[in-house]
Design a protein around this nucleic acid. Structure first.
Length: 875
RNA sequence: GGGCGCUUAGCUCAGUUGGUAGAGCGUCAGCCUUACAAGCUGAAUGUCGCAAGUUCGAUCCUUGCAGCGCCCACCA
């Protein structure tokens, strides 16, 4: 058995532990053990292109602590690690890092290699989608390495044989299988309709990716003319640039002011378009003038109203956010004065929406800009306003509604089922279910899964090309399952030749990819090998635990629940644990964009992995935590204390050339020892209960509290007996209590502090190479059996007496060794009996002789201790 | 506007199935004590956000209010 060094060196210990855990495969999953013995974790795959910061350390530690507890209860742990390298963050990073841009029209170049240009000055190179994806793969490998290194140092007990990346072949296959399965089940819709569109990324965006941001805007009051009359009215709009896209004017059906106009037509200024005046419920008589213009498309109301209005679409905004060329007098763009309309439009065609807004306001302000030519159509000066506008959460400019063809998963007609399955999952903390519930209830769009991007899982579909060159979207050509994964832009469907691509009578590949969430929603199935290995799937699915942040309930939690429900009518996991966020000391969320992130490397160096884990484990689930480096120091202090206390306990056995394992059973004869073991038993029980409820923070707290009592009070009180020269029942009682207590404390701390506990374990209870992390979690009954008559109050009484003695010595500025000449104890008969039972231990710890004790009986149920110090210290 | 959470010592946070409020940090004063000076001992510190109700008794339960944070919705 190794002996412990004088000082604890965390770097050495961490290195040693990591090496031995790896060599022994301590964290390996055993695929031969049955489902009921398995605990499977749906580990969040970190976005590898994101920055590493303490927030990662925080939430992943929570999971690891829970997992380590489960492992010690004997569970066969399935704890994989995935990498989310798919999607926009990676695309962006790769574009900037290599100075490249994906152009799907460029042919693949097998000899091309990505080159990082540190100056970033070379011209942006256009590469094929396949080359672009290769570049993404190269860079994400580097990013993954950084994460793997951090996870390992932090001591995550992940089974590194279980790794995946959301863009790898396996994940693409599962993701495409999911697409085909949903298609078969009729849960997918492919349709062309106005979709929220980001003009910079040029992609559709899902409801879950929306974010409202306050924006400055200007109300423009604009005069419209009622057709074939000299009547006028005013509308108010913040988006005058859409005037050319105005398809109607609406007011509330009960609005007396406008009732007479319903059914008539209005004429727009500048463009002289005749548009119907109609009633619409969404018009609020209280707002503005009560009458507003409907454009294609200014907002969601416009979209909804347009859909049921059967009016033609006037598309003026392009996918790039610029105003499209329009021919007035044709199609939807009829005009009473096509000439004027064309002239006016020529000023704004090709401009971005924002520029066009300014220009059109100028045109409206010109005299004679009304339909009748009487004055200007703009009334007064535009009035400033501030209102929330919808943005893509990762985008820089407001979203627009642009009609495009997209794939959707049907969710709106299944809200009840989604709520049902969500409620079958146990949420920790429970109130987080409410967030899920509200999200589901508030869904107002189908789940859009297609994105017009490149680095993602391709939509596995081809379309027949009709003889006129148009695509037949209604009868897509699907791949066979065993062909997957495929890329329809480079793979050829069965029964076709590559030369037929994009040719009349041939086929055309869907150019889009799936959104990251469409794949991430399958993380449990990805690791359980759904549809690929049934036996394994049954062994792991539904998973036991999904850990994640509460900010992605509407995305990751929701989509995962939705897919498990749609595919198999199942929940994806039994429990979901929601971690809080790390806030900077000013209580702002730590994020890269705010520039307030703290990177974890130096924290691990300075405070040790255990110290950092301690900080994370103190935070309860769902609770946001301010970054406070003092707590790391407390963690480090606890680690040192565990090491030193262990050294002391183990030295008691070394002195006798015995092993602590020789003293795990036997008779505990002394009242103090029994009292402490009773406390310990209660803590084991409390800790176990807390852990089984995923409340690791409480488990840690109760353990830590008793551990400090153990060090500060029990060890001091027991020393006289454990140091005794002669073997005796009293000494054996002390040694058994010391050994059982240390062993139990090490195990209770092991999930949070895997390194220091392993180090001590190796020098004491671990035989050979046995890891503490494979040892069996302590049972409160086993501890309690050693001390059936244990009286926890007695230990508290001991603390009280010794506390009084110390207080007197400290007040007298004497050392704690100073002798006590008299110790008066007043209390009830029962109390005095208790004190007498531990008199010997108290005498030694106070440095009082047994003749110094004076007992006074009192009917009052309180204890008074008066210590008198000796005049001199002969020692 | 709707919802969820929070509000306890200077700071960070526990806690109470309703019975005189806890820890750590920080502050102050001390101490080499057969594990630990990267240590130890002790001291001071609170209208438990505000108001009302229920109760013998409320920091805890109920209601209302306020502040903070978050989620969602709306806002021509």
């Amino acid at each position: 058995m190794a002996t412990l060094p004088k000082k604890y060196n965390h770097q050495e210990v961490e290195e040693k532990c990591l090496k031995s855990w790896k060599e022994q495969g301590v964290y390996s999953w055993d695929s031969t053990r049955p489902r009921e013995e398995t605990f499977s974790v749906d580990t969040p795959p970190p976005t590898v292109s994101g920055s590493l910061h303490v927030g990662h350390v925080f939430s992943y530690t929570h999971t690891d602590v829970v997992v380590r507890y489960q492992r010690m209860t004997g569970k066969n742990i399935f704890y994989p690690m995935g990498w989310d390298d798919n999607g926009l963050p990676t695309e962006r990073r790769v574009q900037n890092y290599y100075g490249i841009k994906c152009n799907p029209k460029v042919p693949y170049n097998p000899n091309w290699k990505p080159v990082h240009d540190p100056k970033g000055k070379k011209e942006v190179e256009e590469v094929s989608r396949k080359n672009f994806i290769e570049a993404c793969n190269v860079l994400t490998k580097e990013d993954e390495e950084a994460f793997r290194d951090l996870w390992s140092r932090l001591g995550l007990s992940v089974d590194w044989n279980l790794e995946y990346a959301t863009i790898d072949d396996h994940c693409r296959k599962i993701s495409q299988l999911s697409f085909l399965d949903l298609f078969d089940k009729g849960e997918l819709i492919s349709t062309e309709s106005p979709t929220m569109w980001d003009i910079d990324f040029q992609s559709a965006i899902a409801q879950a990716e929306l974010e409202d941001r306050e924006q400055d805007g200007l109300y423009h009051d604009i005069r419209f003319q009622v057709a074939d009359s000299d009547q006028e009215f005013q509308i108010s709009t913040t988006r005058p640039e859409l005037l050319a896209a105005c398809i109607a004017v609406v007011a509330h059906p009960d609005d007396e002011r406008y009732k007479p106009l319903f059914g008539k037509e209005a004429i727009t200024p500048l463009f002289h378009a005749r548009v119907p005046i109609r009633a619409a419920e969404h018009a609020d008589p209280e707002k503005g003038t009560g009458i507003l213009m409907v454009c294609t498309f200014g907002d969601i109301h416009d979209v909804e109203w347009w859909k049921q209005s059967k009016l033609p679409l006037k598309q003026i905004l392009g996918r790039d956010g610029k105003l499209l060329p329009v021919t007035f007098g044709e199609g939807a763009f009829q005009s009473d004065s096509a000439e004027k309309a064309t002239e006016h439009y020529s000023h704004i065609a090709g401009l971005f929406g924002k520029q066009a807004r300014k220009k059109i306001a100028e045109l409206l302000a010109e005299p004679g800009s009304t339909v009748s030519g009487d004055g200007s159509a703009l009334v007064g000066e535009p009035r400033p306003t501030r209102a929330p506008v919808k943005f893509y959460e990762k985008g820089d400019r407001p979203l627009e509604f642009v009609p495009t063809r997209q794939w959707y998963v049907k969710v709106l007609d299944q809200k009840e089922q989604l709520l049902h399955f969500g409620s079958q999952v146990k949420w920790h903390p429970e109130y987080m279910y409410t967030r899920y519930q509200h999200w589901v209830e508030g869904l107002n769009q189908e789940w859009c899964i297609s994105r017009q991007r490149y680095f993602g899982v391709p939509i596995p579909v081809w379309y027949p090309v009709r003889t006129d060159g148009t695509l037949d979207y209604d009868s897509p050509i699907l791949p066979k399952e065993d062909q997957l994964p495929i890329d329809p832009t480079s793979d050829t469907p069965q029964g076709f030749k590559e030369e037929q691509r994009d040719q009349p009578g041939g086929f055309s590949g869907d150019p889009d990819v799936m959104d990251t969430w469409a794949t991430s929603a399958l993380t449990p199935q990805i690791m359980s090998y759904w549809r690929i290995d049934d036996a394994r799937h049954k062994l792991l699915f539904p998973m036991d635990l999904r850990p994640q942040g509460h900010d992605i309930i509407r995305t990751w939690a929701f989509t995962t629940i939705a897919k498990a429900m749609l595919h198999e009518g199942s929940i994806p996991w039994k429990h979901i644990c929601l971690s809080g966020w790390i806030l900077d000391p000013d209580r702002k969320k730590m994020s890269k964009s705010k520039g307030n992130v703290v990177t974890p490397g130096h924290l691990l160096d300075e405070y040790s992995s255990d110290g950092v884990r301690y900080w994370a484990a103190r935070a309860r689930l769902g609770t946001d935590t301010a970054f406070d480096d003092k707590v790391f120091g407390i963690g480090r202090k606890l680690v040192t204390k565990i090491f030193n206390a262990s050294k002391f306990v183990l030295s008691q056995f070394e002195r006798l050339e015995a092993s602590p394992t020789d003293y795990l059973e036997g008779e505990v004869s002394e009242a103090l020892d029994q009292a402490f073991l009773a406390r310990l038993s209660a803590v084991v029980e409390a800790s176990t209960t807390s852990y089984s409820r995923f409340d690791y923070a409480h488990a840690l707290q109760v353990t830590e509290e008793l551990f400090w009592d153990f060090c500060d009070h029990y060890l001091e009180l027991v020393k006289s007996r454990s140091y005794a020269e002669e073997d005796s029942a009293e000494r054996r009682s002390a040694l058994i209590t010391l050994s059982v207590s240390l062993k139990t404390f090490l195990q209770l701390f092991a999930p949070v502090l895997p390194f220091v506990t392993e180090e001590v374990w190796g020098a004491s209870y671990g035989r050979g190479d046995d890891s503490i992390h494979k040892s069996r979690w302590p049972e409160s009954t086993t501890v309690a059996k050693l001390a059936p008559k244990g009286d926890p109050k007695l230990f508290e009484l001991g603390k009280l007496v010794i506390g009084e003695v110390r207080a007197v010595k400290t007040a007298a500025q004497k050392s704690l060794k100073w002798p006590v000449s008299e110790l008066q104890i007043t209390g009830t008969e029962e109390t005095l009996l208790r004190v007498r039972a531990i008199e010997g231990d108290l005498a030694r710890a106070s440095n009082a002789s047994s003749s110094a004790f004076r007992y006074t009986d009192s009917p009052i149920d309180s204890v008074a201790v008066v210590a008198t110090l000796a005049d001199s210290n002969p020692g």
